[in-house]
Write a protein that binds this DNA or RNA. Structure first.
Lengths: 372, 372
DNA sequence: CTGAAAGCGCTTACAG
DNA sequence: CTGAAAGCGCTTACAG
């Protein structure tokens, strides 16, 4: 008999309709911004909604309109967390992925879509988890290395899929940036401008398409210029700072003669390499030049500032969403319309800072406020 | 008349049932892992699912089971992006938020929940956007400063809500870490151990509860120890590196005498402060000691390494999800059971590194691989 | 163990 | 402009 204001079940569109003295169809119409309902009706409905604190149920909406207004994003989590409750200090390796997601989300928002994120552990591929998330969204964006090619093909039969920096091919669109051009330019800069004759490339995950391209482009160009480029197992990193540290320590422990310049597969690795070098009293770039790839924000804050290749990370994410959005809307518009592009490649740019041996830029411009 | 394998409409549970020669109820049962269906039946269903590439629709599932298995997370985006298509270099300020989200997501996953993320711009409070997201999930986790207290109260009438580092109070639970204790300890360390007599606190957002507590605790303790603590408008930052830079530049431009130590509201600010100091030829900690708060990964990579207060960021997120999850399940279990805790406070710890004036730790232990 | 049927809360032709 | 009704794709008592 109590009339507490908070019943255990939230108000539905029926409650609103009753309170406003209209049909649920009318409520639905004002909810969706149709210009149908006449002002008087609309106001009554709006009031009822406000009084009741009504929030339309997204699931019901999605079910009847056949659009969830949700896109799923699956990315790779680096280290497990089942280490007794304390979290591994994994975050550094995720900067890249977070930036990518940010780019996706910002553009998605403009289209009324929200992001459903799902990180998967490297060790345990859980196609099952990905299936679940697929059922909760209108389309999927897959970061690199989260699912096998076969798995991607399978899931793509159900929802539109766009991959990021993936191998491309198949039924899904792939968005990436141009690694080859900039790596060749970097090689030229190091060999021609700085005159280094003995260089090396520290690789990222061996199965990363981006890594493969970066390594090959760099080595090819170095060789073409008549210089030496060390590669192979001893130079196999894993995109992490720790990986870079281990490689350098290992080399030094073996008494190897370090190359004059080390190009790393990404900024994280370069960070680790610089550390290991410093720890052994070696100067960057005096003794060994070091370069990265990505141009994450911290690259500018390192001492010496990191020479690297800037990748338009957020734009990649933004582009991926745009392609996916097109696929989603085209899907519902039946007509197979235009096929989604197989691959989109965004431009990159060599950023020359200090770690390659170039002179530092004026201090005043180092840290700008983003806007205004 | 064509029988293309990819119809424009994905298979439903009816298709699976027909193919397996069972009722949709049976399909539903194996989908949900009931032990009902006998092995033979189950296998037929499983095969049909595989052959059809069937993925159950999350919206339909949510609608009938009254559980979406989705939690929403709303966080603050720092800078707008309507600057003509290029993205602002905002990412640094988001490290904290990303870590928080990671903590939430990892624990949520274990409970079969996915994260629906939604960033809101500082400038434009969009309660409307938050309503939409509320309709798409079973519960909401709100970062600090994303919605007014009134807005939070309103939305909490509809879905369970947990706030992060918020002011607490009201019907929602709040999860935060203990800023006061560590800031007092920091003050003692700076004044007692290092003997600094003139210090300052650079504030974060004035309306951030955490910031208020940090500033007050620090200043009170410094005063109690008989030392001087500068505060006020001249020391008002905004949690960003750029904010820290401007404050120091402004002070130096005015010819002010800098304090012997500057405690910053967070690591980002400390990063900016260190930069501005270096840019004017001042040594940290030789001329001015600098400290942060958070202990983000980069704090360890700065030169000098940053003395700061470690906050268990991911654990905060994890805890928030746990509380929310309890509220969600309690909700459906009708009985108002146990009230959710009004506030949960996690412990912090002072991390003494070099920027406060302490000697550097051995180089070898600086960069560890997270696991193994 | 299995199936027929109701119902979750919306949207959207279809009539009026 | 407005309402009655069907239907979106599942889950879940309720019978058998």
């Amino acid at each position: 008999m109590d009339t507490r204001s908070k019943p255990d079940t939230p108000p539905t569109i029926y409650d609103v309709a009753r309170r406003a003295g209209v049909s649920i169809a009318s409520v639905s119409r004002v909810l969706n911004g149709r210009d149908n309902p006449r002002p008087a009706t609309r106001d009554r409905v709006l009031n009822a909604i406000a009084e009741l604190g009504f929030v339309p149920d997204g699931a019901a909406r999605a079910l009847s309109s056949r659009l969830k207004h949700v896109v799923g994003v699956v990315f790779r989590r680096v280290y497990g967390t089942d280490d007794g409750g304390t979290f591994a200090d994994e975050s550094e390796s995720l900067l890249f992925g977070d930036q990518l997601n940010r780019g996706i989300e910002i553009v998605a928002q403009r289209c009324g879509f929200d992001l459903l994120v799902c990180s998967v552990n490297i060790d345990e591929r859980m196609p099952n988890r990905i299936t679940t998330i697929a059922g909760k969204c209108d389309g999927l964006i897959l970061h690199d290395q989260v699912l096998s090619a076969a798995g991607i093909a399978a899931i793509a039969r159900t929802v539109p899929v766009v991959t990021l920096a993936g191998a491309g091919g198949g039924a899904v669109s792939n968005v990436r940036s141009d690694s080859a051009g900039s790596m060749r330019e970097l090689a030229r800069h190091l060999v021609m401008d700085h005159g280094y004759g003995r260089l090396a490339y520290i690789a990222g995950h061996a199965d990363s398409p981006d890594n493969v391209v970066r390594g090959r482009s760099f080595a090819d160009e170095v060789h073409a210029l008549g210089a030496e480029c060390l590669t192979g197992p001893a130079w196999q990193g894993d995109y992490s700072a720790a990986g870079g540290v281990e490689i350098v320590r290992g080399l030094i422990a073996l008494g190897a003669t370090l190359p004059r310049a080390i190009a790393c597969a990404n900024d994280q690795t370069a960070l680790g390499v610089s550390y290991a070098l410093a720890e052994h009293g070696l100067d960057v770039p005096g003794d060994v030049a070091v370069t990265g790839f990505d141009d994450l924000p911290f690259a500018r804050h390192l001492r010496p500032q990191l020479t690297t290749v800037r990748q338009p990370i957020q734009e990649i994410g933004a582009k991926a969403f745009e392609v996916l959005h097109t696929m989603i809307t085209a899907d519902s518009a039946s007509a197979d319309a235009t096929e989604p592009p197989a691959e989109i490649v965004l431009p990159t740019r060599l950023i020359r800072r200090e770690s390659c041996g170039c002179p530092p830029e004026p201090a005043a411009s180092r840290l700008r406020r983003p806007i205004g």
